[in-house]
Design a protein around this nucleic acid. Structure first.
Lengths: 166, 166
DNA sequence: ACAATTAATGTTATAATATAACATTACATT
DNA sequence: AATGTAATGTTATATTATAACATTAATTGT
């Protein structure tokens, strides 16, 4: 159990979320500098909206909030295109089982993580755990399967919610 | 690597699929006998349609085929209700990342399996692998997370397709 | 600086997936 | 047969996502 790399832990309800947000934007800028692609105002805005919380966010909720910002008009492709871009850059992940999107805590190296989703508070923790990945790969190898994408989404109840339920 | 329990292997392209189908129906009847619930003609028909192949099948494709069978009228709820029932009985699994459904090779004991999906032939292999599950559980325990549902969907290329590509 | 090219966004329409709500029919029990 | 429950039928609509084409903004070569 050495390689249990926690990308985003479950955050205590009372943490300073402003810091998460700031760091996410900083990471995004750094990432785009490296890739040479543009973090346009629209893309940055969508990223901020996804990072409003540690809970997965729906595309149409992002869209509704975009529309509030009077500045520019918006339609579904607006948000789906931005989300696609952010996913390609590793800045957000899609949670397939929820049709939702969540910010990535470590976009520095591209990865598909393992997600743990609390059914009570809705929060997500992200791992990029080499033990899990290599075990899955070993199993795949045993029947000649070559992996190109790993999706692991685990539902349950986080420590904080279990504690507060008594 | 002892507990690598293969529920449904990748089937060679030329296997006798009629046997798979027959066995799936037999299993379903047995399962419903145990649970005391009814495998109605509609439910059985939907199960057969899902089992037409080892590839995940879309709800609306099942619906289209149901409509071919002149006997009864059909609408989306018809097929979603049947699929829900079959899922609850462990007779089919939903592949979340494909919005598709696949027959379960071992409905005897309820489980959420691990799915390996070939991007070339579309086929799915299902494991119910205790090594993977227990490793994920161990990781979850390490931060106080209590699992109630595990979802593992792996995309890649199966042995047979890799061989036939040269 | 300008034209040409490419990238990003706007816009309209529609496709694909899924559920709500209520009516009807079939089945099971007395 | 009368009643209650489970299953299915039916209509409408909600939710999620993409296609296709028009316009605007940024970048590049000259």
């Amino acid at each position: 159990m050495k390689k249990n790399k926690v990308i985003s832990p479950f955050k205590p309800a009372a943490h300073k979320h402003q810091e998460c947000l700031k760091s996410a934007i900083k990471n995004a800028k750094a990432r785009c500098d490296v890739s040479g692609l543009r973090l346009t105002p629209l893309r940055q805005r969508v990223l901020e909206l996804v990072w409003q919380s540690h809970e997965p966010v729906k595309a149409y909720d992002v869209l509704d909030e975009l529309k509030q910002g009077h500045s520019s008009s918006s339609a579904p492709p607006t948000v789906y295109r931005a989300l696609d871009f952010l996913q390609e850059q590793g800045l957000v992940h899609k949670i397939e089982s929820l049709n939702s999107y969540v910010g990535c805590g470590n976009p520095e190296e591209l990865h598909t993580g393992q997600f743990f989703i609390c059914r009570d508070c809705g929060s997500v923790a992200e791992l990029d755990d080499a033990d899990i990945s290599s075990l899955i790969e070993k199993k795949a190898n045993s029947f000649g399967f070559k992996i190109d994408n790993e999706m692991v989404e685990i539902k349950g109840h986080c420590q904080e919610c279990r504690d507060s339920e008594k």
